[in-house]
Design a protein around this nucleic acid. Sequence first.
RNA 1: GGCCCCAUCGUCUAACGGUUAGGACACUACCCUUUCAAGGUAGCGAUACGGGUUCGAAUCCCGUUGGGGUCACCA
Length: 478
Amino acid sequence: MPVVTRIAPSPTGDPHVGTAYIGLFNHALAAQARHRGEEGRFILRIEDTDRGRYVADSERRIFEMMEWLGLTPDESPLQGGPHGPYRQSERLDLYGDAARQLVASGHAYYAFETPEELAALREAAQKEGRVIQVPSRDLTPAQAQARVDAGEAAVIRLKVPREGQTVVHDLLRDPITFQNREIDDKVLLKADGYPTYHLANVVDDRRMGVTHVVRAEEWIPSTPIHVLLYRAFGWPEPVWAHMPLLRNADRSKISKRKNPTSVEWYLDQGFLPEAMLNFLATMGWTHPEGREIFDLAEFQRVFRLEDVTLGGPVFSLDKLRWMNGKYLREVLSEEEVAGRLHAYLAGQGHSLPLDDSFRAVVRMMIPRMDVFSEFLEKTPYFWSEEYPVTEKAQKLLEEGRPFLADLAARLKTLPAFDQTVIEAALRAFAEERGLKPGKVMQPLRAAVAGTSESPGLFEMLEALGQERVVARLERAAR
RNA sequence: GGCCCCAUCGUCUAACGGUUAGGACACUACCCUUUCAAGGUAGCGAUACGGGUUCGAAUCCCGUUGGGGUCACCA
């Protein structure tokens, strides 16, 4: 069975984590079909029929987000494809024709009510606890056509049956039943000639051959409209599957105010796309063998839509961070981490050489960071002599005051400066003074790092190098 | 408020009529240890409630409660 899926974001702002989330599943479904040797396509279509909310670079940023995550679509406005154009604003003729076709077949009608009239109608309907009824529905086709011909502003509305019910066969929640009398006559074509979401969505999905509509739960209430539309056109319905909504900690729909929702933020913070994807995959779904860490290929291998759970998953930044750290420590090699971190830092405007010294610091920091943005924050003393000194480090420095100068002198004379030599020297120094090793090491750490929290002292000293270590010690001893 | 969806530890979830209700994050303790981490071990911690069905219910049915979504010429 061919599987054609899509995401259809509107270009109204930052590339949203929810788009990535839904994109992951749609992308996987298409990939699975291809692996089976069947047709599988994943489309990115831009729903830009609301000119009021259009944001110019949003489309490009959505595409870049998908690429970053490795969810590159097979067809999109940027790549093109055989079913384009992929921007609804470039497909306007289609919708007008489709809407008029429905008027001709009696499934839709021209409506002339003004916004003010509609507001009044809506208020009245609300009072009576029923859905709005549009007077234009009762116009004869000839009457309506005459007013349109006269140039009167009109929208086209779907003529929803007054009786009966419409059942949505959602793959995850089948069946969902709606009473037709509770569905209002939705606008299909706006007065400006632009389609509404409902029309454009159905027409495009049909023309692009979409077989599976996998989208967020918030669309459930409009799905009966879409079903009615498919029927009015005489088209077969796609498979419907409504995924749960990502949630804030208070369980409301994930939002900007309560969570970082822009994927660009995660990129800026230095999250890995692999970890992001892995984490998103565990929202509403679990690996059948209980694995926590798995890659996209593995996800595609074992994912089944039917296994999706429906409780709205709370998006936990804590767990995402843990998972990202896990990738740093257990999935990627040290060399890969160094390379990626270097590229990340370059992207942030820090040009550090990708050399052995950088690699040594990275190696020490891998177990000490979860995301790349922590790297420089935690290692200022590796890159400059102007590193901050914490209060606690200051205290340790005082404790070391009696021997810091001597220690500097001792380290200065060391013939080699590797971990083994350093450790032996320090232990010997402590013993001579009748101090426990820690009593020497802590002040030393404070002197060279300005903090009591650092990687292992010996490896850190080696990475810093004899010259810097001695100089810092001498400075601290003064 | 109408309509619709949902309901297992604080969070993500496992269980698909029979388990001491399992794992992960977070939290706590201990171990390791030169600090901080990482890692290891242990602990804390859940079937919302009430009725059914059944020999047996977290699992099936109904109700209640709770949470969420949606009610535009936005998507």
